[in-house]
Design a protein around this nucleic acid. Sequence first.
DNA 1: TGTGGTTGCACAATCGTTTGTGCAATATTA
DNA 2: TAATATTGCACAAACGATTGTGCAACCACA
Lengths: 337, 337
Amino acid sequence: MSNETLLTIAQRTGYSISTVSRVLSGSAKKYRIGDKTVEIIKEEARKCHYTPSLLAKGLRNKETNTIGLLIPSLENYFFSNLASTVITEATVFGYTVIIVCTQEKEQNEAECLRQLMSRRVDGIVAVPSGHSPKEFEMIAEQVPIILIDRYFESSSLPYICTDNYGGSLMATEYLIKHGHKRITCIQGPPFQTPVRERVRGYNDALKNAGLSEYSNVAGEDFTIQNGYIETKLVLSYNDRPTAILALSNTILLGAIKAISESQMKISDDISIISFDNNQFLDYMTPSITRIEQPIQEIGILAIRTIVKRIHGNSAPEHNSIQLMPRIIVGDSVKNLK
Amino acid sequence: MSNETLLTIAQRTGYSISTVSRVLSGSAKKYRIGDKTVEIIKEEARKCHYTPSLLAKGLRNKETNTIGLLIPSLENYFFSNLASTVITEATVFGYTVIIVCTQEKEQNEAECLRQLMSRRVDGIVAVPSGHSPKEFEMIAEQVPIILIDRYFESSSLPYICTDNYGGSLMATEYLIKHGHKRITCIQGPPFQTPVRERVRGYNDALKNAGLSEYSNVAGEDFTIQNGYIETKLVLSYNDRPTAILALSNTILLGAIKAISESQMKISDDISIISFDNNQFLDYMTPSITRIEQPIQEIGILAIRTIVKRIHGNSAPEHNSIQLMPRIIVGDSVKNLK
DNA sequence: TGTGGTTGCACAATCGTTTGTGCAATATTA
DNA sequence: TAATATTGCACAAACGATTGTGCAACCACA
């Protein structure tokens, strides 16, 4: 297929492979290649559509200009958005991205990481799916790695993520400020660091306001069904909450369904606030108040950090960063005061 | 970093590189390597976490087990969804995917394709962004390629996409069946094949029902703003339409905003039907009737086709396929009969 | 003319695999 | 016991690039 190599160009122009290589890789003057020679070789390369083999280059140079992105899945809007900014920013630095998906299964992680290592990626950006940092720590000895979105408390692996605690604190305080006391938090998988941090923020906000007795954390999953079931449940209480803090958009949708089935109206009958942004949220009735994670910033920072690490300009320490999310105010929270 | 190679294992076990290679690549019995030898080598490889270099392998074998995915962007839900199924299905066949984004700019296509070629991908799945098939046709001589979502009428490059004509026909007939005559179609970029096909379906449905005189195609862009502006405009007409056919979700959202600003209600005052599905559409009030593209099927078929082509089992001809979308009925269309 | 510096390029090793071929040592057969 | 098969492995070339080094040819200068 793509037959053109340095050798074929060398043969056709009568120069040696090394000369052709130096010309086409831009190090012509460093090796004092004559101007005419340079022109001839470049012209020939252009004519025959020479495409350098990054395989051979990578093999020889021990760097592939590739960054591996390990992610649970691209179906989720949050992750695909993250992947999007990672790819875009990587391109800025001349890197190409290889994406591997774990399908949110920890047992796939090792295989996915092996894939990336086999392809000799220069660095890895990863969203872990499981409880154990083991695989990542082993990899970290071989290649720069940075975690995003989630991290391991038991590990010193550097990470970049949303300040989930701060975001949740902000959301809960917003509800409290609007007079809400009885607030139910519907969470995702309790072992995930973002979930735990959000719950912690929720509880701290309640505590700060002297409302700890009302603490009520429900659910276990980032699914519509979980949001639906848990909302159904709390709506059946006599002392039902006046507000719900949904820790994801899927949970939000489940809650909306349950609320609507109960012939209740969001805001009028029950307030709701969600984690994560989406353009559709502005077009719901009422529009949904939510906490938007700084996805772009996370992706950009992750790439910049990993690129610095690849170039050896930066110690792997002190690299963990939490970025504050922002609240986007809609009409889903009623002011009870 | 990742120092372990066939050579190091060979040295430590006392066997030759070739023997180690045959053992670890699974061709041990073909070359009559002794059972003990196999065990010793495998054990050593396990202990030192040997990770084969796919660079070297690719260089030698002239195949990389990699498929290139060229796509406008991952921000768009449709494309990220497509990318998701492409990755998942490729993994099934043992392929890894490299994604390059053109940012919907034709002038980036050549560079993106060069990237993929340089990495010696075994095949390419592409969503073109521009008018010209030239770059793709040149590439097609070197490596199997299949277009998805969009295609070139002027080219015989194989493609897989939604039957946009059929989907649009279905949507428009649905509106007509419910008594709508005055239907405005708000379109995206008119040069894109899917848009043209949808408009053709819209017009044919009108013609079949003898309503050609009401044909009204507006807009030029898949943006919220376009949907908003065009809807504002048509709502100002005296003989305003009773229904809108939005050719994308973004256009839909713009339309919703315009309608709501005009103090009108979807369904009650004006009906609407959209192309593309999204889980949020079920939770809008009212829920939106839409045409869902068979994204999964497109992604899966694309990979299967390209894999077959890579293995040389299939001619590149007759490979173009159009898949029928389905309608998901919501409450956004009023029955005028 | 001899010395020394510059210019312009080629040679060859190397990166980590795969694989055709060759060659001992052992086993089988007559 | 001699001839032949079989077993078990090693040698070496090749994939396509990079790069340290060497070596002519040319120039300038004394």
